[in-house]
Amino acid sequence: MRFRLVVDGEPHEIEANRGAKGIRVRVDGAEYRGQVRRSGEMFLVRIGPKRHRVRFEAREAWIDEAHYPIAISGIQDERGPRSETAPSGGTSLQVRAPMPGRVVRVFAEAGMRVKRGQTLVVLEAMKMQNEIPAPRDGTVREVAVVEGESITADRLVVVLAAG
């Protein structure tokens, strides 16, 4: 399940997966493993060696001894339609920018066959050039950026088709 969680004015992208051994939560890309036990209105959450107490109250949450206003939006259940990650046809894959930056090189061309790990575009941010690789083998269906363009994080860069 994915959602956007605003805590105390600060937005976080959350991805949570429940498993047999507890819950895996990714907060802005960093993964935490936890166990949750319910005790009345209180949720006792263990993350690594630490325990946290969470309680909900209208539009606020108590975490340990402090409470914060929270807001949730963009909930996507795994069972629901995952429109943002797999659009037209189940075999295409959208490659998105991991960070904001400027497109300094575009290697990908529509129709090009690429191997997993091959550089599609080079994105420059904060004087660092970061290569965005193909996440798997495939054919470039669409290139959504041009050289010199400044893009935001999560912007669509390339659409890859399997095979």
């Binding site: 399940m1 949570a16 429940r18 907060v27 209208a58 539009r59 206003p69 807001a71 949730i72 909930i75």
Partner: peptide
């Protein structure tokens, strides 16, 4: 961030998210 993770985990386990954004707010 650990607290945010704990909060998110509790939210998921609470079932508050399963039936859609029951108390989702656009403005905090």
């Amino acid at each position: 961030e650990e607290r945010v993770a704990a909060l998110a985990a509790a939210l998921v386990e609470s079932g508050r998210l399963a039936s859609g954004p029951t108390y989702a707010l656009e403005k905090p």
